Simulated scan of single mutants.
Amino acid sequence: MPATTLDLRDVPPPERHPKIHSAFEALASGESLEIINDHEPKPLFYEFQAEVDAFDAENYSCERQGVDEFVATLPKQ
């Protein structure tokens, strides 16, 4: 179960990644951050994989739930 959910669809693109990183850092180990986005967040996945040691890339998931709705779960080790 996600500890935090962020709906980023109305957040300006330059503000999205900093907001995601802040929310992820605030999580405890074993918790997850769920983001709702208007596009598949594949670049974010690669960014987290390369730069965030606590990111559990093996348990990352992303589901398309509508034309402009993608829900991604970013677990923290």
Results as ranks from 00 to 15, higher is better:
P2N: 01
T4N: 03
T4Q: 06
T5H: 12
L6S: 04
L6Q: 12
D7L: 01
L8G: 05
R9Q: 12
V11I: 02
V11C: 09
P13D: 00
P14R: 07
P14D: 01
E15N: 13
E15R: 05
R16K: 14
R16V: 14
H17L: 12
P18A: 10
K19A: 02
I20T: 10
F24A: 15
F24V: 03
F24K: 01
A26Q: 04
A26R: 07
L27M: 10
G30Y: 08
G30P: 07
G30L: 06
E31P: 09
L33Y: 03
L33I: 12
E34R: 06
I35Q: 02
I36H: 02
N37K: 04
D38Y: 00
D38H: 03
H39F: 03
H39N: 11
H39C: 00
E40T: 06
E40F: 01
P41Y: 03
K42P: 04
K42N: 14
L44P: 01
F45T: 03
Y46Q: 15
Y46L: 11
Y46A: 13
E47C: 06
E47L: 08
Q49E: 14
A50F: 13
A50C: 12
E51W: 11
V52F: 13
D53W: 02
D53F: 10
A54V: 03
A54N: 08
F55G: 12
D56P: 12
D56S: 07
E58R: 12
N59T: 05
N59S: 04
Y60N: 11
C62Y: 04
E63D: 02
E63Y: 06
E63G: 00
R64G: 15
Q65N: 11
Q65K: 11
G66I: 02
V67A: 06
V67R: 10
F70C: 05
F70E: 04
A72I: 09
A72D: 10
A72W: 09
L74H: 07
L74K: 05
